[in-house]
């Protein structure tokens, strides 16, 4: 005769025996379904899409199924907006809601000087690719770098602060160290003096 304790222990084991075996390795069909889902991406309206939206908007609830969006209201003045009314009829589809507008990088010249600067930069880059590193003579390089330093510093002082290099500039860390080192040397500054100034000035 078994004790009550032994019976209690045996019961879960029996239940586990009846349950389907859990395999760590997914079946072939599960793997195929997973790959198919990866290829298709997240379908709008799916639970995954809702989870993604909930991550972006912590207040949003996961409902399991997204309710159908309300039909777009009819244009108030159909005659005033004939083209839009023709394509975007009431009840034809959900309404477009603009979530955000993101401005592009301003790589467009707005002054003649900027236009010339863009053209010169492009010309220098092209010459560098061809190995013509002496396309600019030393005095011209000194004049250009000096003027750029003064103009950038004046903007910085005036509160017009922007990154000195564009996000898309292909300048390596080594390039920067070479130029910064040369600039410091040119004005007889040591690296520790730069560090001190930065800590005092809070920059």
């Amino acid at each position: 005769m078994s004790s009550p304790k032994a019976a209690a222990k045996a019961a879960p084991k029996a239940a586990r025996k009846g349950a389907p075996a859990i395999s760590a390795e997914p079946s072939k069909s599960e793997k195929a379904a997973f790959l198919k889902a990866m290829m298709e991406g997240i379908k709008p309206g799916s639970l995954a899409a809702q989870k993604s939206a909930a991550k972006k908007e912590p207040g949003a609830k996961l409902l399991g199924k997204v309710p159908k969006a309300k039909a777009a209201p009819a244009p108030k003045t159909a005659a005033a907006k004939p083209a839009r009314a023709a394509s975007n009829k009431a009840g034809e589809g959900p309404k477009v809601e603009i979530l955000r507008k993101i401005s592009g990088a301003s790589g467009v010249a707005r002054t003649p000087e900027s236009e010339r600067a863009f053209a010169l930069a492009k010309e220098l880059d092209a010459a560098l690719v061809e190995g013509k590193i002496d396309i600019i003579q030393a005095p011209a390089m000194q004049a250009l770098l000096g003027a750029l330093c003064r103009v950038y510093a004046a903007n910085e002082d005036a509160g017009n602060r922007y990154p000195i290099l564009a996000g898309r500039a292909a300048v390596t860390g080594t390039d920067v160290m070479i130029v910064c080192g040369a600039l410091l040397k040119a004005v007889d500054l040591q690296v520790f003096e730069l560090g001190m100034w930065q800590s005092w000035a809070g920059r």
Binding site: P44, K89, E92, V96, I98, I102, S103, S106
Partner: peptide
């Protein structure tokens, strides 16, 4: 499939983008 008005083309500068919600879709 229906055409849905998004914006004036003149409001879109080169390099700009807009994120819109259209029913259950984000585009």
């Amino acid at each position: 499939m229906a055409e849905q008005f998004v914006s004036k083309a003149s409001e879109f500068k080169d390099g700009d983008r807009q994120i819109i919600r259209l029913g259950e879709q984000e585009i």
